[in-house]
Design a protein around this nucleic acid. Structure first.
Length: 815
DNA sequence: AGCACGCCGACT
DNA sequence: GTCGGCGTGCTC
């Protein structure tokens, strides 16, 4: 095993071959981090992915500089997982590595060097560079690679370091290479010597002229005798302000007390009481039995529980069982901010054995969690999709809550994987069971459950025998014709809102479109305001009084007159949530009406403040975008109104109906959680539309059947597999030609009806890049693998054209 | 991804 | 005459 395949944190295909030097041969293992030189002057932290004996033929392999871990940091199961991700989603291992690791675990040129202790350097045989480096180290002890650039030519750095390491003069400082330091807390105790050798009365006598010192000494002594095993925090002494640090210092100077330090976890853990969970209801018990049986057979589960049916309860039971078996749990959430209930309950029960991992942690905090997981200190980890990459030791259960949520598959960040599907695969590698849970499962998961690929468990009953909310469809066309409307609201809807607030209950108004008006249009010449970076009209935000591009974030001031024809007649077209909020505020001037969307929640603690206001009953009506469908579990919301429900359906996306169903059902679940008298008003021009009709029937099975029939008819997932290839470039002509070429290559290998496009993306230009896309509709099953290989072949052929190398290419598998 | 190499425009 | 723009090619 003289050679190693190393994955580098670069967006490059595959891995690189390095030679393992003789002295590292006994230590090196797959999954360890190593330092390797790359290119002219860079050093990277790579991961050993494979060890072998095949000397490369076409190039001379460089040598591994050093090993950073004493045991593998990436477990075998994760290595398999990375390989699967890379193959299934056609993404590079380097990208996955970059995504998986906190940045301080993959430092590049921050690596530090130091002199080996007790060496005598034979300066005679060193070259100039080597001498410089040794001299610098004699003065400074530690030097990082960037510093070395100051006195050694870039191209010689690696050579110099390697030769000095070979000569055993210098080494890599690993502690600092990881630049992470655990936070330490000061504790105090009475000096042991004092207790052994000195008479207490003597000491107290000696302190008689220093009242506070004496008191402090006695205070510490008392605490220490009371419970010798407990550590006394230094900061606690000064808490009530009676003692000051000067008193402590005086005692320490007299050698009577001493302070010592211990590492403290950076992440605060709950230390309060641990509470038992309530007992399961009958239907929950039944559901749990089905899950138990499925798990026995090694099957995973889709837990379809209507809103408020108490899925969390069942999760908690299964989590507890898993922990009692001595295994660990991963609990995945789409986003960390909306986790109050589950965390509170788990915190109470599991206290310090609970960990969190998500995008909002600092890098140090992430490393801390990494260590604790690696040391098997954490029994339950709650996290977002990046938590899938933690080095779990003994994983027994993965729960994916709100499995339908699109946050599990953000389109912006590579690697482009779906955390829900990845969780199933990861579970398989760890031989752990997986529960996918949702009130509105994704159509794909539902189909898989129906096909018995995973066990379907349906929780139909709301907890505490609360009934499901009642739906009412309001025909807006009719209301308009009979003049029973005010703005975007029918009088019927206004009446219901009024009744709700009069009864001191709360209402939600959902309108899933940001801003005030979608477009500002010149009445005389038809001019609309386009974003200068993207081919998108800019949305008018009245609250901020500016135009915003929702794709690149660009902002501009609102035009006072048409820049083209100078007409001052500008029309606002397309209703946004701000406008709905404004209307409701005008209709209910006596009541408190607040808005909740990404724009109003941007400020720090905005979400927390709003949450408290709703909880305290200070808000009567909340107007918001899809944001309000998550996490708002309050007792007094009785009405949900959707004034412009049609806007959800007319989106150019084959998942529009699924999304509309999910959003309406999720937001409906907020109503009548306690009273069981929740009411949902859906105002639409098409009350006969199947989706609305089916939602009204409160029968999920029928909704899925309908959507599945549609999907089958038009050959969409889950009946086919979609792969979307997107090409981007600054020059439209170039990316157009490139995508035509790629299209023709794909058609060469794949049947004609599998390849759609290329065509301009819906947003033809984004951030000044022109975008073209090709959609591949591939069959499921055996043929899929075959076809995917052909796609890979086509992409390879495309990559060989050097003229197209500057084109950015993204491949979305399971688009 | 970085970084070097190399070939053309605007400047001390 | 040179500095620096970014197109192209390579990294084990």
């Amino acid at each position: 095993m003289n050679y190693a395949q190393i994955v580098l944190p670069l967006n490059l295909k595959g891995s690189f071959t390095y030679k393992v030097p003789q002295e590292l041969l006994s230590e090196i293992q797959v999954g360890m981090r190593v330092l390797v030189p790359f290119g002219g002057k860079k050093i990277y932290t790579g991961i050993v992915f494979e060890l072998h004996d095949n000397a490369p033929e076409s190039f001379v392999a460089k040598e591994v500089i050093s090993i950073l871990d004493d045991k593998p940091i990436v477990p075998q199961e994760q290595i398999q997982f990375w390989n699967w991700l890379s193959e299934y989603y056609l993404s590079g291992l380097g990208e996955i590595y970059r995504f998986a690791f906190p940045s301080s675990l993959k430092l590049e040129s921050e690596t530090y060097l130091k002199l080996k202790p007790n060496v005598t350097v034979d300066f005679e045989n060193l070259d100039v560079n080597e001498m410089y480096l040794i001299q610098a180290l004699e003065v400074r002890q530690l030097i990082n690679l960037t510093d070395i650039e100051a006195f050694i030519p870039k191209k010689d750095i690696i050579k110099t370091i390697n030769s000095l390491i070979d000569l055993q003069y210098i080494e890599i400082d690993e502690k600092i290479a990881e630049k992470y330091k655990a936070k330490e807390v000061a504790y105090v105790r009475i000096n042991d010597e004092v207790l052994k050798n000195q008479n207490l009365t003597e000491i107290i006598l000696s302190l008689k002229r220093a009242q506070k010192q004496k008191d402090l000494f006695l205070h510490i002594l008392e605490k220490q005798t009371e419970n010798p095993d407990m550590h006394i925090k230094k900061s606690d002494l000064f808490e009530d302000g009676y003692f000051g640090s000067s008193h402590f210092k005086a005692l320490a100077d007299k050698n009577l007390v001493e302070e010592y330090y211990m590492q403290k976890d950076r992440i605060e853990s709950y230390e309060g009481e641990i509470e038992e969970i309530e007992e399961l209801s009958e239907s929950q018990k039944l559901a749990k039995i089905t899950i138990d049986e499925a798990f026995e057979e090694g099957k995973n589960v889709l837990l379809h529980g209507v809103t408020s049916s108490g899925k969390t309860h069942i999760y908690l039971e299964k989590i507890e069982e898993c922990i009692n078996e001595g295994k660990n749990v991963l609990f995945l959430l789409p986003e960390i901010s909306l986790t109050k209930q589950i965390t509170q309950r788990l915190e109470k029960k599991y206290g310090r054995q609970l960990g969190f991992y998500h995008q909002k942690l600092t890098d140090f905090e992430r490393v801390e969690v990494w260590r604790r997981i690696r040391q098997n200190d954490i029994k339950i980890l709650i996290g977002t999709r990046n938590a899938l990459f933690l080095p779990f030791q003994n994983l027994g259960l993965i729960v994916v809550d709100e499995e339908h949520d699109s946050a599990y598959r953000p389109r912006e960040v590579s690697p482009y994987f779906n955390a829900k599907d990845a969780a199933l695969v990861l579970g398989n590698f760890y031989n752990a069971r997986v529960i996918l849970g949702s009130a509105t499962p994704s159509v794909e998961s539902y189909y898989n459950a129906r096909k018995d690929r995973i066990q379907y468990v349906f929780l139909e009953e709301r907890f505490g025998k609360v009934t499901l909310p009642e739906y009412e469809l309001i025909n807006f066309k009719e209301a308009q014709d009979s003049k029973k409307v005010s703005g975007n609201f029918s009088l019927r809807l206004i009446d219901e809102l009024k009744r709700t607030v009069d009864e001191k209950n709360q209402a939600i108004v959902l309108h899933n479109r940001r801003g005030y008006a979608n477009v500002i249009e010149c009445e005389s010449c038809g001019y609309v305001n386009y974003c200068s970076n993207c081919d998108v009209v800019m949305t008018y935000h009245k609250a901020a009084n500016e135009m915003k591009c929702h794709y690149c974030g660009q902002r501009a001031s609102k035009p006072k007159a048409c820049p083209k024809c100078h007409s001052e007649k500008l029309n606002e077209r397309g209703v946004g949530v701000e406008q709905i909020h404004e209307e409701v505020s005008k209709l209910f001037p006596e009541n408190e009406v607040d808005r909740m969307d990404v724009d109003s929640m941007r400020k720090k603690f905005a979400y927390e403040k709003l949450y408290e206001k709703i909880e305290d009953g200070e808000i009567d009506i909340i107007v918001g975008t899809q944001m309000i469908s998550k996490g708002l579990d309050f007792d007094h919301i009785e009405l949900v109104a959707i004034p412009k429900a049609d806007s959800m359906l007319y989106v150019q996306d084959f998942r529009a109906e699924e999304r509309a169903y999910q959003l309406i059902t999720q937001v409906s679940g907020r109503a009548g959680r306690v009273s069981g008298k929740g009411k949902i008003l859906i105002q639409t021009f098409n009350p006969d539309h199947s989706v609305f009709q089916l939602i009204k029937m409160n029968n999920p099975a029928k909704v899925y059947k309908y959507i599945l029939t549609e999907r089958q008819k038009f050959h969409y997932p889950p009946f086919t597999k979609l792969i979307m290839i997107e090409l981007k470039h600054r020059k439209e002509e170039k990316v157009n030609r490139a995508s035509q070429f790629l299209g023709s290559v794909l058609r060469k290998y794949l049947p004609e009806d599998c390849v759609l496009g290329p065509e301009k993306s819906q947003i033809a230009r984004l951030n000044n890049l022109y975008q073209f896309q090709i959609l591949l509709k591939l069959p499921r099953g055996k043929n899929y693998e075959k076809f995917k290989k052909l796609v890979l072949l086509s992409l390879k052929e495309f990559d060989e054209i050097t003229a197209y190398q500057s084109i950015k290419k993204d491949v979305f598998v399971d688009f």
